[in-house]
Design a protein around this nucleic acid. Structure first.
Lengths: 137, 137
DNA sequence: CTAAAACCGACCAATTTCGTCGGTTTTAAA
DNA sequence: TTTAAAACCGACGAAATTGGTCGGTTTTAG
């Protein structure tokens, strides 16, 4: 039940970009400042871009920048872009999957409770909140 | 960011035992009723036993039973026994580990928030609650 | 004595994680 | 117009984790 470094790195990269909302930041600078492997970060950034959370400018002086303002980007969107889903267990992650034990499953109710709480935080937190430090909610 | 089947199976096994607090249940019966691989479940049960959450009676007619009443067993204890920790990220899971970025890390505050919320549910839920269905908290 | 059960350590296949590598395309600036 | 810095892309691969399997031993009720 660990959060992968993919998500941790991805979130850090997004926070990095959010700190300089106007600026275009190269992968090189993010990787260097955050101490994340350049090649690996590229893969992560690529997912964030495909999800439409960031945009890129190619060529010399190019780099990445947020597609929306930090206050408009929920953490949920970031995790979903990287992880595919914020679902903790199969029966909540995959729409299609239908567990045969569902009806009588006493544990599902519990996992659901965890899931709801988690999603609520993921949804109520934005990049702007992270930069401000902590948040009330 | 998935919860492993190890934890899911383990929780189901504990709920199973909690449903018959007096009875001694054999691994065979749990595995059969819950549809979990016998050999794999054995490994899981072994961890729960080492953590002191369940006890065993050996020999014919033997099996497993809870060491405390369902109302006294928090889900947190179960997850910790199986997973080693309920920590989501390294800097919260390992006591020893000290992240060099800690001071300036804006994401840590966020993960911490998630962690606190998670632990609070893990701590306030007992096996008895799961059996009753859902719970207020 | 026997069979049912817990107990135990070693092994193993598949998957996921966490990268690496070698290229290509684009583009600002010299 | 060349050059170098950057994004982009697909393939590969080592290491760790997950989810088991197997072959035994010990214990104990009947």
């Amino acid at each position: 039940m660990k959060i992968s470094t993919k998500s941790q790195y991805g979130l850090r990269a997004m926070v990095y970009l959010a700190k300089f909302p106007q600026k275009i930041c190269s992968l090189r600078s993010i990787s260097k400042d955050e101490g994340i492997s350049f090649d690996y970060l590229e893969k992560i950034i690529s997912k964030l871009k495909k999800a439409g959370l960031i945009k890129a400018k190619r060529g010399v002086q190019g780099g990445y920048f947020l597609n929306k303002s930090p206050a408009e980007i929920k953490i949920r969107e970031i995790i979903k872009a990287l992880e595919g889903t914020t679902g903790l267990v199969k029966c909540m992650a995959a729409e299609k999957y239908h567990c045969p034990r569902e009806k009588k499953c006493l544990t599902k109710i519990f996992w659901k409770k965890i899931q709801v709480s988690l999603n609520s935080i993921f949804d109520s937190s934005t990049l702007a909140d992270l930069i401000k430090g902590s948040k009330a909610t």
